[in-house]
Amino acid sequence: MIEAIGLHKHFGALHVLKGVDLRVADRELVFVIGPSGSGKSTLLRCLNRLETPDAGSIVVDGIDLMHRRTDLNAARRRIGMVFQGFNLYPHMTALGNVTLALRKVAGKGRAEAEALGLAALERVGLRDRAGHTPGQLSGGQQQRVAIARAIALEPRVMLFDEPTSALDPELVGSVLAVMRELREDGMTMVVVSHEMGFARAAADRVVFMDHGQIVEQGPPAAIFEAPQEARTQAFIGQIQRH
């Protein structure tokens, strides 16, 4: 489903990605962990070309994202993304947030877009909040609306960039529950997050990144219980103490 090969990315003098290969199979859930500055978010943001790598190839669902004639806007419809800071449009209602791309990108009429939007809000358990603006919703609810905004377009892949890091601990569960349901529906997902419990329960594979490279990867149990590399061991030890 995703095949990213040989990705390099510089921010000025900083070499953020140093030759990263990531393949994700259909219906696979891959967790990406690593210290801050390891390049994990940059890697994720390359997968829908919010960042453009300096070198490497990215093919998602058969679409070559690095080809200059690829229609990125059309490709992005098929790649949903959820951000750490939710990034809901504050001047629109929850339903407005979910229907904007349905109307402007997918070209649906108002009635059809609203029906699809309400169905997406229903999936995240927030149909009754359709008329609320983001300011009237809790962080957890905002993040679920953001997930609805992405899944309303029926993407083939979902990218999550630290979806629960900005949430109060008691609100994390509701977002993870929605992600778990997506997982059960067979969505292909790449998740940058340190939610180890969720990774253990739901991930097929955990990828550990450090200094712009993939250091080690494997099933959650292997990475969390018996990491092979010293850097992985140090990192796992650190996050388990917290």
Binding site: N48, L50, N73, A74, A75, R76, R77, I79, G80, M81, F83, G85, N87, L88, Y89, L100, A101, K104, V105, A106, A146, R149, A150, L153
Partner: peptide
């Protein structure tokens, strides 16, 4: 307007002018 707004919109397939 925070850049996250633009990123969110572009990630759903909206063009730069949209």
């Amino acid at each position: 307007v925070p850049t996250g707004q633009t990123e969110a919109a572009r990630s759903t397939g909206l063009s730069a002018s949209q």
